[in-house]
Structures are given as structure tokens and as C-alpha cells.
């Protein structure tokens, strides 16, 4: 477990709303898996923003011993994160939470991501490709400018299907058609989803209908990030019983078929 200051190699704006940060974490990189997150200290003044901010890992560079984050600048915490300069130190706690699990026999999987959720699933794509699994991805965003990681995913050999609000291609019926086409052609074994409740519901009904594996990475406001405070809870359906579980501890990756959306 990592809890220390780490050097920021770069922290730069990549589009109108998104920033990209790389942090050196040393040997601890070996413990990081896709789907996990780190809790970042935005300010050490104990004033504002007071709490840490959880960011999921976008890229794990085991060779360079670094991790990368792609983050949406939305509130006070992420605004403060943009103030960090190359060479500054980042106070990180992590890796936290349960990572994605890939089925050993999987040959084709589908990633369904929207907005900043694309960052979380890019780490999984990298991991899956290394295991020789073919990845297909439906990327959804408000605008083309909001689309993340397209170049990286393409270079990894992920088959991309891009939909945006501005082009009017992101509505659910269209996304479902793409899902069906991909599944018809490649008979995928699992769907992995992050970043949109609407897309998650669609993917959930699809995996149940088609009897596929499915996992979801949830986002939630957190306080401690360690499973202590019970602030970030969600409901899971376990054997017909609804159970309230911690997103930071039992998640953030859950069985898509069991999450109450």
C-alpha cells in the first residue's frame, strides 16, 4: 500500500475540459491494477478543498514505474489539481479498491465508456491486450473534443466505435445496435462499463439477456476512501437481498448483473 509523496512528471491540459497527469510511484507500481483508484491530496492547508479526490488509474507503466491519470476538471478539487507543476510532489493514497477481473477464457470483450469513464477502461484495455484478448470499445462523449484516449486505444489495437451527442449518435437505441452487431460478429464474453448510468443500464440488460459476464466501475463522492466512513455506498442485489456496500472497499468494480442502478 502506498501513502507518500510522489514526483509529478507532467500535468497538462489535453482538451477544453480534461487534464492528464503522470506520477512516478517507484516499485509500488507492481501492486496497481486496472479499475483501482488513488486518493489525491489537492491541498495540504486543511482549508479548501478539504477532502482528497479519488481518481481511477488511466495508464499503468510497469516499466517506467509511473501511473497516469486523466481527469475532468469539474469542481474545486480537480481545479486545484491543475495548479500542480511538473516536478511538484503529489500526496497519494492507494492503490485502493477492487480491480477488474478478466475471465481466463475470454477472447473478445466489449468496453462501454462515456466521458471520463473512458480513462478507467483504457487501463483495462491495455491489460486485456497484453493478455491477448481482443478489445472492442464503444466510446461516448458530449463532443469530439471530450473524447479521451482515442489515439492510445487505437495504437493498442482496440476496435473503436465512437458516438457523440453533438453528432446525434449517442442515443441508446443506436448504442444497442452497435452492441448487437459487435456481439453477433465476435461473440464477446464480457462487457465492461464506466461513466454513464444510462449506458450501464443498457449494458446490464444486455449481459443479462445474452448471459454474458459484466463488470462496472462506479464513481462516487468519497470521504476516507479506505472503507472506514461508509459515505460512498451503493446497493447490490445478492440472492434477492439488497445489500448496501462501500464503493471504495467492496468496489469500485462490481458485477454489473448485481449492481442496483
Amino acid at each position: 500500500m502506498l501513502y507518500k509523496l510522489n514526483e509529478i512528471l507532467f500535468n497538462k491540459q489535453i482538451s477544453s475540459r480534461y487534464w492528464h497527469m503522470e506520477v512516478f510511484v517507484g516499485q509500488d507500481v507492481d501492486n496497481v491494477l486496472p479499475g483501482q483508484f488513488f486518493n489525491l491530496l489537492c491541498s495540504n492547508e486543511n482549508t479548501f478543498p478539504f477532502l482528497r479526490r479519488p481518481l481511477s488509474v488511466y495508464k499503468i507503466n510497469y516499466d517506467k514505474k509511473t501511473i497516469e491519470f486523466l481527469y475532468l476538471v469539474k469542481g474545486d478539487g480537480t481545479k486545484r489539481l491543475t495548479k500542480f507543476k511538473n516536478g511538484d510532489c503529489m500526496d497519494l493514497v492507494g492503490p485502493l479498491g477492487v480491480p477488474f477481473k478478466l475471465n481466463n477464457g475470454a477472447r473478445h470483450i466489449l468496453l462501454v465508456a462515456r466521458g471520463v469513464g473512458i480513462a478507467t477502461l483504457t487501463a483495462l484495455a491495455q491489460y486485456a491486450v497484453e493478455k491477448g484478448i481482443q478489445c472492442h470499445a464503444i466510446l461516448s462523449a458530449r463532443t469530439k473534443d471530450d473524447l479521451l484516449a482515442v489515439r492510445l486505444l487505437t495504437s493498442l489495437g482496440v476496435h473503436l466505435h465512437i458516438v457523440t451527442d453533438e453528432e446525434g449518435t449517442s442515443e441508446l437505441t443506436h448504442v444497442k445496435e452497435i452492441m448487437q452487431k459487435i456481439h453477433y460478429k465476435f461473440s464477446i464474453q464480457g462487457i465492461y462499463v464506466c461513466g454513464s448510468k444510462r449506458l450501464s443500464k443498457l449494458a446490464k440488460s444486455f449481459v443479462i439477456e445474452q448471459k454474458l459476464e459484466g463488470q462496472i466501475a462506479l464513481e462516487e463522492h468519497m470521504a476516507c476512501g479506505m472503507g472506514v466512513c461508509f459515505a460512498c455506498v451503493c446497493n447490490i442485489l445478492n440472492d434477492e437481498n439488497i445489500e448496501s456496500v462501500r464503493v471504495c472497499k467492496e468496489g469500485p468494480v462490481f458485477d454489473l448483473r448485481k449492481v442496483v442502478l
Binding site: F48, F50, L51, H221, C232, S244
Partner: peptide
């Protein structure tokens, strides 16, 4: 006890407000 509905915490200047509901 199931605890209270979310959001259960929010931050304020130099502090936070919580209502977890003793889950």
C-alpha cells in the same frame, strides 16, 4: 441499519458535514 441516503458527506471550508446514519 441501512444508513441514510446519499450523498452522506460534503466538504466545507476546513471541515466536512456527514450524515451516515450509523450503517
Amino acid at each position: 441499519r441501512p444508513g441514510n441516503k446519499t450523498p452522506r458527506v460534503c466538504e466545507v471550508t476546513s471541515g466536512m458535514i456527514n450524515s451516515i446514519g450509523i450503517q
